[in-house]
């Protein structure tokens, strides 16, 4: 039986952050990027525009839903998590915890009795 691999674990970071931050609260792109900056104490800094392809891809796959709202003469697009997005977030979170746990074990070095 082939081993399951996780080649996208680094690529999945923006997706994980977006899904987690949109859980329970809808946000538009700029607001979401500021939330990422705050939540990660600016450890993770992306070109801020890069968040939109992630949002659009997640929306296309049904993990997010969006609505337009006119605010101060501008049309903002607000994103929120769908039930499918909740399931996806749970799956990605579990994978991420397994991976970070495994890396932590490596960094801590072999334990001797």
């Amino acid at each position: 039986m082939p081993r399951a691999t996780n080649p996208n674990f680094l690529n999945g970071v923006p997706e994980l952050l977006v899904l987690r931050l949109l859980r329970g609260r809808e946000m538009y792109g700029y607001e979401l990027v500021q939330a990422i900056r705050e939540a990660t104490s600016e450890t993770i800094t992306l070109g801020e525009g890069v968040v939109y392809p992630v949002l659009h891809m997640l929306e296309r796959e049904g993990a997010l839903a969006s609505r337009r709202q006119a605010v101060a003469g501008r049309s903002r697009i607000y994103y929120r998590l769908t039930p499918q997005g909740e399931r996806r977030l749970n799956d990605i979170s579990q994978s991420w915890e397994r991976i970070t746990g495994a890396i932590r074990n490596v960094l801590e070095g072999p334990r001797h009795a």
Binding site: Y28, G29, Y30, V33, E48, G49, Y52, P53, H56, R74, S75, R76, I77
Partner: peptide, 17 residues
């Protein structure tokens, strides 16, 4: 359509920045 939406959101984001 995807390009227009992406650019509109980038433009708004730019204005917010």
């Amino acid at each position: 359509g995807a390009v227009s939406r992406y650019l509109a959101e980038l433009r708004d984001h730019h204005d917010d920045l």
